[in-house]
Every structure is written in structure tokens, then in C-alpha cells.
């Protein structure tokens, strides 16, 4: 699905991302963990063609993301509030995203149905602009919009941050369902080790831009990660 080949990003002589090789096969869900400044977001931005790599390439389904925008048809993503058109109401925003993917109003409602638990009655029908929602609710809107197009690849940066405990658990279950029922390929970064292990079957650890560990999730993973991050 996604192949990274000798990818580097260098800012003023500092290497922030340096990944010689990373392959993500279709249907795989990969969790990216690492401390602040490890290069998670920069990596995601390069995968989404928002930052030009200093070196190397990102291939999505074998096509370099820089050369063609085809990947946008099957990729849903939410990194931060910069992805939200914050002067629209929630409904208008979902409609806009739905329209771009050729979904009818009914399709949009249907696809949002699984999100109603997560939304907790605070998102739809609020008659207010997205910019006036709380950070947590903005995140829910962004994640829902990313999933709306039923993408083959879903890229989320810190989806659990800013959410209350119930919402975190609901979102976790939602992502698991998506993975199991739709075989969605996922790339999720998180600081919450237990959640990310629950959702993802593979964990990679980034440190100072380097990929230092790549493992399949099993019952010992949480322990291993905790040991790794205990300094």
C-alpha cells in the first residue's frame, strides 16, 4: 500500500526524518510511537505530500505521491485543525467532503451513523461553526471526515489526544471495527501506548527521525514499549 524508500527530511542541517525503508501492506494497521520531535508528524506530512522530502520517495500503491494526486481518491487523513474548514458548520463540512467523493446526502448520513456514539450528541445539529467547537470535538469531526470517503488508507495523527476517556474508548472500538470489517490500512501515531497497541497489529518506534524498532503486536508489546520509553 505504502512504500517508503530512503526517505529523508533535513531542516538546516538537522535530520528530522531518516527512514531507509518501510513497507506497509494493504490491510495492515501500523502504530507510530515516539517522543515529541521524533518526526512522526513530518513523516505523515511527507506521506500526504504536504512536505517535500529532502531525499527519497513515498510510493502509494506503487505511484510516487509527488507525481500524481491519485492517492487522494483512496486516502483519508486528519493531522490537525489545519485540515478543518473551520468557518463551515459540521453538516456543511461533511457535505463538502461527501460531495468531493461523489456521495449523496443519504450516503453521508449512513456513513456517519457509526460515529453517533462517539459524537455523543454534541456534534450534529449544533448550528455553530467548526471553529467554535472544543478541541476534542474538532478532532472527532476531523476523524469522521477522514473516514467518510471509506478510504483504503487512513492516516491519523494523535487521534486520542484531547478526547475524554469514554470518547477514547469509543474511537478505539470504531477504528478496530473499520480495520476488521473494511480491511482499512491504517497509519496512526499516538502517545497513548495501550490504545495504539489495541488498535494496531504492528508498532514502529521513531526516535530522532530514525526507525529504531518495528514489531508485531502481542501480549508483551505494552511491556516492551514501557521498558523502551522508561529512561
Amino acid at each position: 500500500m505504502v512504500t517508503i524508500d530512503n526517505l529523508q527530511k533535513i531542516y538546516n542541517g538537522t535530520t528530522v526524518v531518516n527512514i531507509p525503508e518501510l513497507n506497509i501492506t494493504a490491510g495492515e494497521s501500523v502504530g507510530v510511537v515516539g517522543n515529541n520531535g521524533a518526526g512522526k508528524t513530518t513523516l505523515f506530512r511527507m506521506i500526504l505530500d504536504l512536505i517535500r522530502p529532502s531525499k527519497g520517495e513515498v510510493f502509494s500503491k506503487g505511484i510516487n505521491v509527488i507525481e500524481s494526486g491519485d492517492w487522494k481518491n483512496y486516502t483519508g487523513s486528519y493531522l490537525d485543525e489545519g485540515f478543518l474548514i473551520d468557518y463551515l458548520t459540521t453538516e456543511e463540512y461533511f457535505k463538502f467532503i461527501g460531495d468531493l467523493h461523489g456521495l449523496s446526502g443519504g450516503d453521508v448520513t449512513e456513513r456517519l451513523a457509526p460515529f453517533m456514539d462517539l459524537f455523543n450528541g454534541e456534534i450534529m445539529g449544533q448550528k455553530k461553526y467548526i471553529r467554535d467547537f472544543s478541541k476534542g470535538n474538532q478532532k472527532k469531526i476531523g476523524v469522521a471526515a477522514a473516514v467518510l470517503s471509506n478510504p483504503e488508507l487512513l492516516v491519523l495523527d494523535e487521534p486520542f489526544a484531547n478526547l475524554d476517556p469514554s470518547s477514547q474508548i469509543r474511537l478505539k472500538n470504531l477504528l478496530k471495527t473499520l480495520r476488521e470489517q473494511k480491511q482499512m490500512t491504517m497509519l496512526i501515531s499516538s502517545h497513548d501506548l495501550s490504545h495504539v497497541i489495541d488498535v494496531c497489529e504492528r508498532i514502529v518506534i521513531l526516535e530522532k527521525g530514525q526507525l529504531v524498532q518495528d514489531m508485531q503486536t502481542n501480549e508483551n508489546t505494552l511491556q516492551e514499549l514501557e521498558t523502551y520509553f522508561t529512561v
Binding site: K72, T75, E81, G82, F83, I85
Partner: peptide, 13 residues
């Protein structure tokens, strides 16, 4: 500018 990243990742050429 506030939602430029969002526009770039959407199906808009």
C-alpha cells in the same frame, strides 16, 4: 491558510 493542508489532501486538483 487555516485549512490549506486539508485542501491539499482532498480530491481537488
Amino acid at each position: 491558510g487555516g485549512h490549506f493542508d486539508g485542501l491539499l489532501t482532498q480530491r481537488i486538483s
